[in-house]
Design a protein around this nucleic acid. Structure first.
Lengths: 333, 333
DNA sequence: TGCTAAGATAAAAGCGCTTTTACAAGGAAA
DNA sequence: TTTCCTTGTAAAAGCGCTTTTATCTTAGCA
């Protein structure tokens, strides 16, 4: 049986409220009394019971994290960032993902029931009403890799700008004219922004993006291969293939090798994300770096800061910069 | 203000103990009474407050996870497995990693204070006394990727067998004679087992493993490159390099390419882990597959089952099989 | 010497739930 | 009709803590 605050109080010869005051440093306690209490705590190896404390204070020292159960190194980096910020602040991280039901938004009740002090919501389908309710109740909440209007604080990445610089590079340095795009899942805004950047940039250069050159993928392993195979059946092959993420780009490269098409000589390939293995494939993949770790780290940090000062999070829309990473799959030496 | 059990009781015209009985389904309740209570619950959108329940029952419906804060795809797979098993069981996952201090074992107090119903400890430095104390207290606890004697349940992977089959393949199919080994961190048993398998198998074939051919690495990005560079300075170059994990193996391949040494013609390279990108490098990496997702999934499942039936975990040492994955970096077509 | 204010601590209420104990009502057996 | 179970429900204690309110000292001052 672990010691309780009563045991400490008895051993120190004080009341439990004094022990509590010593523990929380809220009120003044006579130095000698404080010492006696601290000795007793040490002697009994006493530790506060978290749920009792939470029940009384409504604070749990836990940060909630909602994240899709996707096998994606990108998400893993976000989780790492969140985790590092959380443990640095002395908080614990709570992940309560319910199994996903098609079309039904996830609910955040498990987090409310547990009184998380803040919540980081990553790229996931949640009801805006519920998010709003939490914010109204003063629970710090930050979105990552998604937005819900100006009122909800969000951290995203400059997909548009990154894709644009990438395409500009392909146009101005390499002079490619026939672009193909392997799309990610349709439902994500990231994909839409990247595609939009591609289209606008081509427009500005009076180049078209025929719809036959936009092939559907799903971001996951395998879909890039199929998409590439489809592109190879077209009468006129593209000069360059822009895949919405690195996974699909590398799968596309696999498909090209299988068909003895060389990269980048015959067809160049570029991706997006700059995942860990992008520099290990042959040729090394030209891509756009997303600061995924920082995304998680900063989002968690902001949330925790708000939690610690007991204020709501400022509804700021933060867009982290992306960065072009030129390797060789685009045609550069 | 969310509704409490009192509000429900008042609305249904019963006492709170009846509401509790309906909620927990423990005792018999008259069907009509039950219905009234359930209606009230629905009408008030009532939900139990987790810490109050935990305080009264000593159960939190949370599974604790201790895992090194390392950027390693292998650990990511374990986390995924743990997460899937946890959410499938309706539990939440709690990660409470204190910042690591050199040489000081992590303590598990944050998990105890929060009354986690079970604990999965992955490849990390914890004090055996603390583990033992939790087990004695009846908290289900399972080790992953580490062991602490027969009394502590553990899930590991057959490092020895996997490495052995790999080496046998290199000997019998390819006839390599000069083996080099790029070691992982010295402190991990995985590394020791893999090295041991290499040595024993070579012994059996009357081949030596000169200590100059065993180079120190640290499992992480970069160290394989340096190790390989060092091996290339030796008078007699090895036929084949066995790296203790895929990360170092692929880095070694990078080093070889930088020195215009071709893989596998001049020097073959093999790894261990079968991480996601092993099949994407050129040539695709021959390696040993570790069931890392299953490792996490099964460990969590066993822990949660014990938690749900309120029994301690059987102290079983489970060794999951590894599997040779032959690709082309070993010299196979 | 008596009064007041400040400082230190104790007492008690409350956080929301579970669970044991007690009790009332109704039906079956004697 | 009385007695004894059974069934269903209420009352109350307890889980371990925080925090408000009350109380008691003691020092400072007139």
């Amino acid at each position: 049986m672990p010691a309780t605050i009563f045991d400490v109080a008895k051993l120190a010869g004080v009341s439990i409220s004094t022990v509590s005051r010593v523990l929380n440093g809220r009120d003044r306690v006579h130095p000698q009394t404080r010492q006696r209490v601290q000795d007793a705590i040490r002697k009994l190896d006493y530790e506060q019971t978290a749920p009792a404390r939470t029940l009384a204070t409504r604070r749990s020292e836990m940060l909630g994290l909602v994240i899709p159960q996707v096998n994606d190194p990108f998400f893993y980096q976000i989780v790492r960032g969140v985790e590092d910020a959380t443990s640095a602040a002395g908080y614990s991280l709570l992940i309560a993902s319910q199994p996903r039901h098609e079309g039904i938004p996830r609910n955040l009740k498990p987090f409310r029931r547990r009184f998380v002090d803040g919540l980081v919501v990553v790229a996931i389908d949640v009801a805006i009403e519920e998010v709003q309710e939490l914010l109204d109740r003063g629970v710090p909440l930050v979105l990552v890799q998604m937005t819900m209007g100006e009122q909800v604080p969000a951290f995203t990445v400059d997909n548009y700008g990154g894709a644009r610089i990438l395409v500009e590079h392909l146009l101005s340095v390499h002079g490619y004219r026939r672009f193909a795009y392997i799309a990610g899942s349709n439902y994500t805004p990231d994909n839409a922004e990247r595609l939009c950047a591609l289209q606008n940039t081509l427009d500005e250069h009076d180049l078209a993006l025929p719809s036959a050159y936009v092939v559907e993928g799903d971001y996951l392993r395998g879909s890039g291969y199929e998409a590439m195979q489809h592109l190879l059946t077209l009468d006129e092959r593209p000069d360059v293939v822009f895949a919405a993420n690195d996974q699909m780009a590398t799968d596309a490269m696999l498909a090209l090798r299988a068909h003895n098409v060389s990269v980048p000589e015959d067809i160049a390939v570029v991706g997006f994300d700059d995942v860990h293995f992008a520099s290990y494939v042959t040729p090394p993949l030209t891509t756009v770096h997303q600061p995924s770790y920082e995304l998680g780290f900063q989002a968690a940090q902001v949330t925790l800061q708000a939690a610690q000062y007991e204020k709501p999070v400022e509804p700021v829309q933060t867009v982290l910069p992306t960065r072009l990473v030129v390797r060789q799959s685009c045609g550069c030496a």
